[in-house]
Design a protein around this nucleic acid. Structure first.
Lengths: 190, 190
DNA sequence: AGTTTTGTAAACAGATCAGTTTACTCAATT
DNA sequence: AATTGAGTAAACTGATCTGTTTACAAAACT
């Protein structure tokens, strides 16, 4: 019956609250109320709020990348098309009711000066998204796969910011148009 | 002697603290300590911390846009070149010791759900940057000036995120390369 | 000279924060 | 049947938060 462990329930509830309201703005009492779990149990699984935040970011890092790769591979077969379909998946993500931007970027914004562990986890998230794109870029025959991947990550993160600010998921299609130019530039034969 | 009013000193000190550590993470006592101003005086000029935050964002909105326009106009004369030199100014901005990203985007991240006034001020910031770029795009002869401006704002905000995450101001040059492709696409004769 | 404005310093109120502790329940294991 | 582990509920600690109040000082205005 109980499909999720208490630890997972806590991480899920925390992620939703943190992304919607921010890390500092959400107190542990709010998380306990939403998850229906006692304070004692929270501090059994996590030694501090900071520890919980780290777990939430690592969980996001894994699940989001899995989601992105799964969706991309389900839609297109060629690496060239997969690079572009990333932005269709993005539009789907932007359209979710609970979409509030990139958790990792938000975390860097709130902790970059104070907490090096959180900062490193967030950099890792962006780095791994870039690695995935580089992999696809290599398969697609890009001359400078690392360079193309960096451009696409910039477009990806830019689209996230614009989606949050404008509230319009369609900005993903604009990013896709720009991405096509980048890919064609890096792949075309001279 | 006292060049700045107490109100301006408070806004300056707050802006530096908020951008470096976040809005919720910085208490008013920290602002008072940094600015050397008493709590009584703070609450004379601002009716609440939220009111102070709004004033900081509006001040940022004005001063940053002025800075950008002044620097752009000082470097290039043609609208086409001005559109691109925006990213050279960005690199200069990213290289500042106190650079910690876009204050408006950070504020949206911390207040989007809770505070509509703050959210609106931040949207306004992004909208006005876009208007400036649209103006230049029109002068540069873009067929779809609004569309080109939207692309350039996306690159601009994407570059900011990547500069924060990577700590490398050079991402601005990468964005400039991408911007040149966008501009050429929108301006070239068919 | 007298009054108003502008400011500081510091104590205080009341809420909220993270985290601990005590006392209890209930189900699974042994 | 007894014990252990996982959990809840709630009081509590001590720190910190925003915002108010009281008391006082110095300068500016009339």
């Amino acid at each position: 019956m109980t499909r999720l462990s208490k630890r997972e329930i806590l991480i899920d509830a925390s992620r939703e609250l943190f992304i919607a309201r921010g890390f500092h703005a959400v107190g542990v009492d709010t998380i306990l109320k939403k998850s229906g779990i006692s304070k004692r149990t929270l501090y059994k699984y996590f030694k501090s709020k900071e520890d919980l935040i780290l777990a939430v970011i690592r969980h996001y890092d894994e699940t989001f990348r899995n989601y992105l790769m799964r969706e991309v591979e389900a839609r297109k077969d060629s690496a060239y098309e997969q690079l572009l379909v990333i932005f269709d998946v993005s539009e789907q993500w932007f359209s979710e009711a609970n979409f509030h931007g990139c958790l990792a970027v938000k975390a860097i914004g709130e902790f970059s000066e104070k907490n090096k562990a959180i900062q490193r986890s967030c950099e890792e998230f962006v780095r791994l998204i870039g690695e995935y794109m580089e992999e696809l870029a290599t398969k697609a025959g890009a001359r400078d796969a690392k360079g193309l991947a960096r451009e696409l990550v910039l477009l990806f993160e830019g689209a996230i910011v614009m989606a949050v600010v404008s509230g319009n998921p369609k900005v993903a299609q604009q990013a896709k148009t720009m991405a096509r130019r980048c890919v064609d530039e890096h792949v075309k034969k001279n």
